[in-house]
């Protein structure tokens, strides 16, 4: 579980910092991107065990970013993370591995990350 590398994509700086610190406390190595283009670049040049991707981000949206990431690496695990719960049931059709509704309580996010990282060895 330790030394796993996670990329967090979110346009809100404070959310990025919160998630980074919370996940670092769990022992993960955390990298950040504030938009879709940056995320795609980072995925191209680095290897991440997991990408946590916000759907509503400026530039290209989350689903486009997801598609681009999957083009680079089909097996790249991605968790969609959004304040908006409406599309939770659609996540599989978008080829993401999970969908987490953003919350101040990061328990669900942490559990989902742990689950996916375990599944993928």
């Amino acid at each position: 579980m330790k030394n796993k590398k996670i990329l967090i994509v979110d346009d809100e700086e404070n959310i990025r910092i919160l998630f980074k610190e919370e996940l670092e406390d769990e022992g993960y190595a955390v990298d950040l991107a504030s938009n879709g283009f940056e995320a795609i670049e980072k995925v191209k040049n680095n290897s991440y065990d997991l990408v946590v991707l916000d759907i509503k981000i400026p530039g290209i949206d989350g689903i486009q970013t997801l598609n681009e990431i999957k083009k680079i690496n089909t097996n790249q695990p991605v968790i969609l993370c959004s304040a908006y719960g409406e599309f939770r049931q659609d996540f599989s059709s978008w080829a993401s591995d999970a969908y987490v509704v953003k919350s101040a309580d990061t328990k669900e996010l942490k559990q989902t990350i742990a689950k996916i990282l375990t599944q993928n060895g």
Partner: peptide, 15 residues
């Protein structure tokens, strides 16, 4: 909700 929720997550998370 989306606009409100992000700051809420930040407040709650950092507290």
């Amino acid at each position: 909700a989306h606009e409100i929720k992000n700051p809420l997550v930040v407040i709650g998370g950092f507290t």
